[in-house]
Computed example of a mutant assay.
Amino acid sequence: MPGKVVVRPSEERGYANHGWLDTHHTFSFANYYDPNYEEFGALRVINEDIVQPQKGFGTHSHREFEIFSYIISGELEHKDSMGNLEILKRGDVQFTTAGTGISHSEHNVHKTLPVHFLQIWVKPDNPKLSPAYHTKTFSESAKENKLVRIISPDKKHVPDTIGIHTDFHMYASLLDQGAKVTHKVQGNANDGDNKRKLYIHVIEKEGMKVLINGESLLKHGDGAFITEAISGDEIIFESVGNRTAEFVIFDLV
């Protein structure tokens, strides 16, 4: 089996319910701290957030990280110190290079429905980048029984992605019951040190289940660390739950 797989069950994540915010933390964040889960390569934060109607995060500051939101359902208003104001919906990925410093707010503008999204933080190779903002929409059809690449360090050669400033790739899929999809590990197989890491996260929706290489089972909200993967390895994902499985893959050094 390519690489070593360690499953992180959903219930082992950090958790808090603030009334207006229901949140799970894959890595140490806010009041949740676990020295075993502080980061994974350049990946520092995966928060799965559900924000109630007409509620949100007030204006706050970020610096050095690249921060992006993957919208699962609902409507999220983003407003920042660079003058950007946008309402994000399902399929949208909003990406901010915080660099030398930005401020922003995130607010659920819907009157009756919650917004459900992933917020991810990644450490770029250069923490002192100029602040920047990008949004891109990825259709349902692009994800259906396929892996769509969302973020890439080589936007010049992968123009349909959002560019990031480190060796980090993000993919997403909507996998029908019984369907399979294969991910080929990134990197140059001819390099001397071609070992890579992957993290897989299954969206927190009841009934979603994903089997990795026929052996490791992830249910909704679960994640998996894959280490010692080699560039060019093929990893097979199969949807084995009672509904279409939505999951994301992070492929990094």
Rank of each mutant, 00 (worst) to 15 (best):
M1G: 12
K4T: 15
V6L: 15
P9C: 06
E11S: 14
G19H: 07
W20I: 12
D22F: 00
D22W: 02
D22H: 07
S28L: 04
S28C: 08
F29D: 02
F29E: 02
A30P: 03
A30K: 15
F40R: 10
V45S: 08
I46K: 06
V51Y: 01
K55E: 14
G56V: 03
F65W: 09
I67P: 01
F68Q: 14
F68C: 09
Y70H: 12
Y70L: 12
I72A: 11
L76H: 00
L76G: 02
S81C: 13
N84G: 09
N84M: 11
E86K: 14
E86A: 13
E86R: 15
I87C: 08
K89N: 13
V93K: 01
T96G: 07
A98P: 01
G99A: 01
G99D: 00
S103V: 08
H104C: 10
E106W: 04
K111L: 15
T112H: 10
P114S: 08
F117K: 04
Q119E: 10
W121D: 00
K123H: 11
K123T: 14
K123C: 12
P124V: 06
P124S: 06
S130A: 14
S130K: 14
A132Y: 10
H134N: 15
K136Q: 13
F138Y: 13
S152K: 05
S152A: 10
P153A: 06
D154V: 08
D154C: 06
V158S: 11
P159W: 04
I164K: 04
I164H: 01
H165W: 11
F168C: 05
L175C: 01
Q177K: 14
A179H: 05
A179C: 02
K180F: 01
V181C: 07
H183G: 03
H183D: 07
G187C: 08
G192P: 12
D193R: 15
R196P: 00
R196A: 03
K197Q: 12
I200P: 00
I200T: 05
I203E: 06
E206W: 04
E206L: 12
G207R: 05
I212S: 03
L218S: 02
H220Q: 13
G221V: 08
G223S: 08
A224H: 04
A224F: 05
I226G: 03
I226K: 02
T227R: 09
S239Q: 01
V240N: 01
N242L: 07
E246W: 05
I249R: 01
F250R: 01
